[in-house]
Design a protein around this nucleic acid. Structure first.
Lengths: 351, 351
DNA sequence: CTGTTAGCGCATTCAA
DNA sequence: TTGAATGCGCTAACAG
């Protein structure tokens, strides 16, 4: 590739090629160049060819700021997540980036760091930057706030959360059905004394997954033993704490359903530390299918959370929404998934 | 917060407040508003106060596209990494975002997906979007290419790589010294039969870390046994393959230095699978301090790779560079680190 | 200290 | 089919 631009270098530094340069060299008006660039309006074949040739030669690239100014929108998608360094949100961002680039957009990242005001501040900042399409992973805003926000920002998409009133801009995951699957799997392997290590953040996801467990039990004709329900923070330490609590209670169990993979790892650590054999004595199930599942001994059976695909989808949706593309108000965007079986779940030995 | 803008709502939809609106309501000229917004030029105290009040009331936010158009630069920083979903690059992005936001910039993400052309394409695309400051994590471009690129894009910063000719725009990590520390630690615990599981990608990092090992051996007055050097891909499977190879060779070893944490986990898995006790019989060291280190049994002793801090620094540097801020040509930006001791390394038993 | 003027690069009228 | 004119929102230069 050439780093110099034919006939347009200046002695001091590098001058950017504008639409006027192209027009002048091609002997046409800027309006015509604009037309061939955007493929809008009628342009004569010969004329178009010549302009395209000059564009090539000069290496002309439209100035995005100028375009945004006149078009009143940018080709950026904003992504607001708690913390991009967490694997889950990294995957989300990766999916979003692919999808954005696919349609010529760029991805703008904002970390909200789990603060309510930052979520709103991030939306406003993004919007001020002309970013109409926004994907928001909100943890602390209320449904009401989100509904208000979505009235104001028409390119706003909520990922990983379902709000009936704005269902058409929610891209979410069926936590209930997915968790019920876990119970099915466990039951099919003979487990009945199933413990649950849930997250103390009693908002949305944890509650839904718990609901899924209860639903799964019901469908299997089993009864869930509430003495086997423990809760802690949704991380490694939380998993350990849950296992500890479980052991302390003395209630026998042959399987543990953890809120996520991290907790599952914590559970396994603590069980092993206390002399339990995993999975021989206790089966453990995670949630997310994070990298850790394959790095643990035993490797962890889990539910794949298709966050990357969801993000890809969400980006397209946000762009459509921002463009006012008619989206059916009564349609939502629900993703489902299935189990990934690894080593941490085994058939219960016949006693 | 109020979602309506005093006296400026229109019947259909929402009209954005411009500098002219503020000027009109405040009874001043747009230029004056611009002055108070940017803190440039002289403005009377009373006047400034009134304008600020109106700005508040109207919720005025400057249109960034218009600003960029006239200022000839955006307030975006571009980040190009292979894959944002990998933990290492997620941490990099997190640091970059914090730093960018801190100075009122936004972070634009591009995945290069380990392709040479994508790296260049990403730079060009970013630049076409008016993004002058760019952080590049390049894996496949040659030094020569990078040098050429940096002549053309003055806001370009290379992270995680050192190129003498453009040292002042390189933010990098001292792999050699860090790895030498590992040998020191191991030696201090009595290890001499130390194996190395390196990455097959024989470019830069792996080579430097190998160099660090050799240097460490030299400093300790030990001799490195080349029969204990194995190599594979820099992931879990690679780690397993290395351990397998090591076992097969039959050469005794009491410790393994892995290229990174993932390989360390793989090594541990394979050793355990083959009846070795870790760390009782074999100590294992990782590199990076990724989340996995604390999720593994035993937890992994490793080197902290301060990529987040490095990214924070790189962003400031890129912005300065783009502004032509005088940066000493003969100064580079080198980060160092130290060991994080966990359970995977223990004193060798006296035989 | 403040207002007027001009123009950044582009897309979109309206004429021709 | 093409060109000339206009303005998007803002900042910088120049007057006053």
């Amino acid at each position: 590739m050439a780093f110099t631009i034919a006939g347009l270098n200046e002695s001091e530094g590098f001058r950017v090629v504008t639409i006027n340069d192209v027009a002048r060299v091609a002997g046409v008006s800027p309006a015509t160049v604009s037309r061939v660039v955007n493929g809008k309006g009628k342009v004569g074949d010969a004329c178009r060819a010549r302009v395209q040739k000059i564009i090539q030669e000069l290496g002309y690239k439209p100035n995005v700021s100028a375009q945004s100014l006149v078009n009143r929108h940018t080709t950026n998608v904003g992504l607001i997540t708690p913390k991009i360094s967490m694997e889950f949100f990294g995957n989300l961002a990766a999916g979003a980036e692919v999808s954005a680039r696919d349609v010529g957009y760029s991805l703008l990242i904002c970390n909200s760091l789990y603060e309510e005001e930052s979520e709103i501040a991030a939306i406003e900042s993004l919007h001020a930057k002309g970013c109409e399409s926004i994907i928001l992973h909100s943890d602390y805003l209320t449904d009401k706030q989100l509904i208000e926000l979505s009235e104001r920002y028409k390119g706003l998409v909520i990922i990983n959360r379902y709000i009936p009133k704005i269902a058409s801009r929610c891209v979410w995951f069926d936590n209930v059905a997915s968790t019920a699957q876990i119970v099915d799997l466990l039951a099919s392997k003979g487990h009945e004394a199933i413990a649950v290590a849930t997250s103390i953040y009693q908002n949305r996801d944890p509650q839904q997954r718990l609901l899924g467990v209860r639903q799964g039990f019901m469908m299997q004709g089993l009864t869930f033993n509430d003495n086997l329900l423990v809760e802690s923070t949704a991380n490694l330490e939380g998993g350990k704490a849950c296992a500890q609590e479980l052991i302390q209670r003395g209630e026998p169990f042959t399987a543990v359903i953890a809120y996520n993979d991290l907790m599952a790892v914590g559970v396994i650590h603590e069980l092993v530390k206390n002399g339990y054999k995993v999975p021989e004595q206790v089966s453990v199930v995670g949630f997310d299918d994070s990298a850790m599942c394959r790095a643990c001994i035993p490797t962890i059976t889990t539910i794949k959370y298709p966050i990357e695909e969801m993000a890809e989808y969400a980006v397209k949706l946000a762009i459509d929404l921002a463009k006012d593309a008619a989206t059916p108000e009564n349609k939502t965007h629900l993703f489902t998934s299935s189990m990934i079986e690894r080593e941490s779940v085994v058939e219960i030995p016949h006693s």
